[in-house]
Simulated scan of single mutants.
Amino acid sequence: MSLLTLNQMKTDIGQYAVLHDVSLEVPEGGVFVLLGRNGAGKTTTLRSIMRLWKPAPGSVRFDGQDITGLHTADIARLGIAYVPENMGIFGNLTVEENLILATAKGHFDAARLKRITTLFPALERFWTKQAWSLSGGQKQMLSVARAIVEPRRLILIDEPTKGLAPAIVAAMAEAFTEISREATLLLVEQNFHFARSIGRDMAVIDDGRVVHSGSMAEFAADKPLQDRLLGLS
């Protein structure tokens, strides 16, 4: 069953048409990866789902409900979280304060907090440190932790491995695999090695259109197709 369905979604930013009839089905469970060259429209797709950019005619359905006209806050209340490329954390607040802001009632559920610190042990070590003092990898961990501090059905994550050291990327892959057991992940990712290591399903966006979709295993086995769509060679 599809958890998220995009049907002919179009998005204009100023005078520029960025997305052209994007249609996509994201199954429930596991990791779905959006691939594509720089400027292809991947980030705009995530932002349009969250209504941070307002798409033109077309529809977005989540768990069977049309959410096209909802405000961003209402979309989030349905159980959708968004981790932007710039991470969206508050540098002058501590790790603890950043996470408290992401809770619904201003306090932690003990079981979920334990899950977060198990997935990202560094956050517990730097619990009282201001977020600006964390490394790039630790900031990314914090941004993902904010998205899972409450139960979610769908988590949109934009370029989670950008600029991270290989060891941190490997740790992030393990964490995402674990998180995907309870929530569907929709990732925008440039690191194809990382994407194929955790992705179950995928799609390629080029020039604002979905030009290919299918299983990650099949795409990873087709090197000529990778070269044609992504220029990986």
Rank of each mutant, 00 (worst) to 15 (best):
Q130I: 12
G208M: 07
A110T: 12
L123E: 05
T103M: 11
A167G: 10
A145K: 04
H212E: 11
G88S: 14
W127P: 10
V95W: 12
S213K: 14
R115D: 09
Q190M: 05
V169Q: 05
A175Q: 00
A175M: 01
A203V: 06
G163L: 12
P121W: 01
L119C: 03
W127T: 11
W127Y: 08
L185H: 06
K162F: 06
L101T: 12
I157D: 00
V83W: 09
S197L: 01
M172H: 04
A203G: 03
F126A: 10
S213Q: 15
L187T: 06
F194C: 01
R153A: 10
Q138E: 15
V188T: 05
F176M: 08
D109M: 13
M141T: 04
G106E: 13
S143V: 05
M87R: 15
A183P: 02
Q130C: 07
L142E: 10
P84V: 11
E97A: 15
T94Y: 07
E85C: 09
E159T: 06
R115Q: 14
L185R: 05
R152I: 08
R181T: 13
E178M: 01
L186T: 04
I179L: 09
D206V: 11
P121G: 01
D207N: 13
F194S: 03
R196I: 05
R146H: 10
W127G: 12
V169N: 05
E174D: 02
G79Y: 04
V83Y: 07
D109E: 14
T128P: 01
G163P: 04
H212W: 15
F120I: 08
S215W: 00
F176K: 00
D158H: 13
E189F: 04
M141W: 13
D109R: 15
F176D: 00
S133D: 08
R181G: 01
N191E: 03
E182D: 13
V169W: 00
I155P: 02
D109I: 14
Q190T: 08
N92E: 15
K139D: 07
G136V: 02
K162N: 11
G163R: 12
I205V: 12
L154E: 02
K114T: 15
